[in-house]
């Protein structure tokens, strides 16, 4: 498949942050040599899940051209994002790739009314010429997420609940009619029913509007429900990726296994299992800086080699796993 067949092609991207003082500081590889691609003609929902602080949001920033990779490249519709410089190109790109962020309180300035963001988006991206015409577009987008213009009119962010605000930001992202939606924890602040409304909406956008979605979430049950493929991140690395049912029905990487086992089930009778004590990593920086597999310090199946070198990508059982346990079992 040439790059041209791809909507998005992420080629070995790495993002390094320097934290602390210049002298005593450390390097933190927040995204570490990550590659994957999305097909151009077959839209899909691709989930990024994994540990808190593992680099998911940073990866999303790279894909949104909001952060330059330290190395590697992000290609969208055949064009390297690094070459997008002019205002016109940027606007054109933003029209096709729209974000929905994790914390809606940070997305919206407390000093602006939320409806103004929606009107601006409709006008800036050419969906409407003026405010009056935009109101139709805005109301339509709000209805898709279970709100109405009447409800948000004249309101400031603090006058809406977290869930309402999050739905407003999904509505805003839909206004330019994007090809790719980058949704960073779009449902973490909403109730179970709305959660289904939003993920069902993603499914509908994929099936009926040809929109691909990169869905970043901690909610593996909704990930299983809507996505086609999933990538599990740990300390900057994608440690396991493949079709969502393969990966979540039978996780191979010991971290994915712990992750799946920790998903709470809505069954009170099974709680004894879930509240069994578990081992957590402590400070982020330490695990990021670890030599060898980042999970070695907590892995129930750790071997000597895991503490010495980083495990390579191993292709096994229809997916890619970074774990020495599967060395020698590669499928061709």
């Amino acid at each position: 498949m040439s790059t041209y067949d791809k909507l998005l092609d992420v080629q070995r991207v790495t993002a390094v942050f320097h934290i602390g003082s210049i002298i005593g500081g450390t390097r933190l590889v927040a995204v570490n040599d990550v590659s994957f691609s999305l097909d151009r003609t077959r839209p899909e929902i691709f989930t990024l899940a994994g540990e808190s602080g593992s680099g998911k949001t940073t990866l999303a920033r790279l894909l949104l051209h909001d952060l330059e990779p330290t190395s590697g490249a992000v290609i969208f519709e055949g064009r390297d994002l690094a070459t997008i410089k002019s205002r016109k190109d940027t606007l054109e790109f933003m029209k096709k790739v729209q974000p929905v962020f994790q914390n809606p309180f940070e997305t919206f300035s407390p000093l602006r009314r939320v409806e103004d963001y929606l009107y601006d988006t409709a006008i800036n991206f050419g969906r409407a010429k003026n405010r009056r015409m935009a109101s139709v577009v805005v109301d339509e987008a709000l209805h898709l997420v279970g709100l109405s213009l009447e409800e948000v009119t004249r309101r400031y962010p603090h006058e809406l609940s977290g869930g309402q605000l999050q739905r407003v930001s999904v509505a805003r992202a839909l206004i330019p009619q994007p090809r790719l939606l980058l949704a960073d924890e779009p449902v973490s602040m909403v109730d179970a029913s709305l959660r289904m409304a939003i993920v069902n909406l993603f499914r509908k956008l994929r099936d009926e509007q040809q929109v691909s979605v990169i869905y970043i979430t901690h909610d593996l049950a909704t990930a299983y429900y809507i996505s086609d493929r999933i990538a599990i991140m740990l300390r900057g690395l994608v440690v396991e990726s493949g079709p969502v049912n393969e990966v979540l029905d039978r996780p191979l990487h010991p971290y994915t296994q712990v992750l799946k086992e920790s998903v709470p089930e809505p069954v009170p009778e099974q709680r004894a299992q879930w509240i069994r004590p578990i081992d957590l990593g402590t400070t982020e920086v330490k695990e990021y800086a670890r030599i060898g597999c980042k999970f070695a310090g907590r892995c129930p199946r750790v071997m000597d080699i895991c503490r010495q070198t980083n495990p390579p990508d191993i292709h096994v059982e229809g997916r890619i796993v970074k774990c020495y346990l599967y060395q020698g079992q590669e499928s061709s």
């Binding site: 540990e51 808190s52 920790s262 709470p264 509240i275 957590l280």
Partner: peptide, 14 residues
């Protein structure tokens, strides 16, 4: 625990 991954969530709630 809304912002946390399920492993960490489990640890916090425990």
């Amino acid at each position: 625990t809304t912002a946390l991954d399920v492993v960490v969530q489990r640890g916090v709630l425990q």
